[in-house]
């Protein structure tokens, strides 16, 4: 009786381990939320995000199903032995997640990254582009 419960509990703990570690990891790598502008026009959505201090190779953009994740790591070369005396940017990471809507064509996302500003253009799918609806008058 005791043995089985021990086995069962150890099993559940084994199954739970990766889950909890990933959750802890998420809590540990706290990130700043970059300010963004989101503008929608007839053909699509433009998103601009301020990510100062992020190198081009440290920027990570992901589209999974209907979520867009923007992640960037701040990497600023500092002289050796520097002691921070004042910091308004206190975390080395940016992260922001958006839920996209289904009329957006995630396969055609275009991204540009210049001077710490990310510009994303997400076009609307062909069938979702606006069409003028004829009104018939009988």
């Amino acid at each position: 009786m005791n043995d089985t419960t021990a086995v069962a509990s150890s099993k559940t703990s084994v199954r739970n381990t990766p889950d909890t570690t990933s959750r802890e990891l998420k809590r540990n790598d706290a990130a700043m939320m970059p300010p963004v502008d989101v503008i929608e026009d007839a053909a699509g959505i433009t998103l601009r995000a301020d990510l100062p201090g992020v190198g081009k190779d440290k920027l990570n953009l992901r589209v999974e199903a209907d979520t867009l994740t923007i992640e960037g790591e701040v990497s600023i070369p500092t002289p050796e032995g520097m002691e921070a005396s004042y910091a308004e940017v206190g975390l080395p990471r940016y992260r922001r997640v958006f839920t996209l809507s289904k009329e957006l064509d995630t396969a055609k996302v275009a991204a540009e990254f210049r001077n710490g500003v990310l510009s994303l253009r997400i076009p609307k799918a062909e069938h979702a582009q606006p069409r003028r609806i004829e009104i018939k008058v009988s």
């Binding site: 301020d50 201090g53 500092t78 002289p79 032995g81 002691e83 001077n115």
Partner: peptide, 15 residues
């Protein structure tokens, strides 16, 4: 931030 030789200021001013 600072070192004994210099003071370093970083302004996060993108775009």
């Amino acid at each position: 931030g600072g070192t004994p030789q210099a003071v370093q200021i970083y302004a996060f001013a993108p775009g």
